[in-house]
Simulated assay, not measured.
Amino acid sequence: MSALLEVADVSKRFQMGGILGRQEVRAVDQVSFGIAADKPEIFTIIGESGSGKTTLARMILGLERPTEGNILFRGQPVRHDNRADRLKFMANVQPVFQNPFEAFNPLKRVDRYLQSTARRYLAARDKASIEAAMDGALQKVGLSLAEIGGRFPHELSGGQL
């Protein structure tokens, strides 16, 4: 199996407390799984509130470092020691947030997010290639630039966002 993502014995501990005493909290404890690169797969992390789902997701995205274990994306450690590493990783991995109304600035038009993504991750520079990239991405999810362009987040449904 060629792995797209490998999570191996990952743990995350936080120190809580202050001068009266410190306590260690295990947010994630010895999690391991792999996602194959050679076949489509839907993978879901589920659990009760407080079970470590968000902390695990933050570690996979490189926003939090594991206390123990390793996370590899396409065989490379998920570490963002510099801006170039982070941008390279984010060109391939994008989170989908649970509440889209919190993920978007209500004062920014939705197509501005798409434009900046096309520029940054697809290196699109001219207006035609930027719009083609935007429309292509929207078409993949059953939308179009004609219906999304120029609209604010509150003008779209949660599903559209």
Rank of each mutant, 00 (worst) to 15 (best):
residue 3 A to T: 10
residue 5 L to E: 00
residue 5 L to P: 01
residue 6 E to S: 15
residue 6 E to H: 08
residue 8 A to M: 11
residue 9 D to G: 13
residue 11 S to F: 12
residue 15 Q to F: 11
residue 15 Q to I: 11
residue 16 M to T: 12
residue 16 M to Y: 11
residue 19 I to R: 10
residue 19 I to A: 12
residue 20 L to N: 05
residue 20 L to M: 09
residue 20 L to T: 06
residue 21 G to P: 00
residue 21 G to M: 00
residue 25 V to G: 06
residue 28 V to Y: 09
residue 29 D to I: 07
residue 29 D to T: 06
residue 33 F to C: 10
residue 34 G to Q: 15
residue 35 I to N: 07
residue 36 A to M: 09
residue 37 A to F: 01
residue 39 K to A: 15
residue 42 I to D: 11
residue 43 F to V: 06
residue 46 I to Y: 15
residue 46 I to N: 11
residue 46 I to L: 14
residue 49 S to E: 14
residue 53 K to T: 03
residue 54 T to I: 03
residue 57 A to T: 10
residue 62 G to V: 07
residue 62 G to I: 12
residue 63 L to C: 00
residue 65 R to S: 15
residue 67 T to S: 13
residue 67 T to M: 04
residue 69 G to R: 02
residue 70 N to H: 15
residue 70 N to Q: 15
residue 72 L to V: 12
residue 76 Q to N: 09
residue 77 P to E: 12
residue 78 V to G: 00
residue 82 N to Q: 14
residue 83 R to M: 11
residue 85 D to W: 03
residue 85 D to N: 08
residue 87 L to G: 06
residue 87 L to Q: 15
residue 87 L to C: 08
residue 87 L to N: 14
residue 89 F to S: 01
residue 91 A to Q: 04
residue 91 A to M: 06
residue 94 Q to C: 07
residue 95 P to W: 03
residue 96 V to F: 02
residue 97 F to K: 03
residue 99 N to M: 12
residue 99 N to S: 04
residue 100 P to G: 03
residue 102 E to C: 05
residue 104 F to Q: 09
residue 106 P to T: 02
residue 107 L to E: 07
residue 107 L to R: 13
residue 108 K to Y: 09
residue 109 R to N: 09
residue 112 R to G: 10
residue 113 Y to G: 01
residue 117 T to S: 14
residue 117 T to Y: 15
residue 118 A to W: 11
residue 119 R to Q: 13
residue 120 R to D: 06
residue 121 Y to M: 08
residue 122 L to M: 05
residue 123 A to G: 02
residue 123 A to F: 06
residue 124 A to T: 06
residue 126 D to W: 01
residue 126 D to Y: 10
residue 127 K to G: 08
residue 129 S to P: 07
residue 129 S to L: 09
residue 131 E to K: 15
residue 133 A to W: 07
residue 134 M to Q: 09
residue 137 A to R: 05
residue 138 L to D: 01
residue 138 L to N: 02
residue 139 Q to N: 14
residue 140 K to I: 12
residue 142 G to W: 04
residue 142 G to A: 05
residue 143 L to I: 05
residue 143 L to C: 14
residue 146 A to C: 01
residue 147 E to G: 06
residue 148 I to T: 04
residue 148 I to D: 04
residue 153 P to S: 05
residue 161 L to C: 06
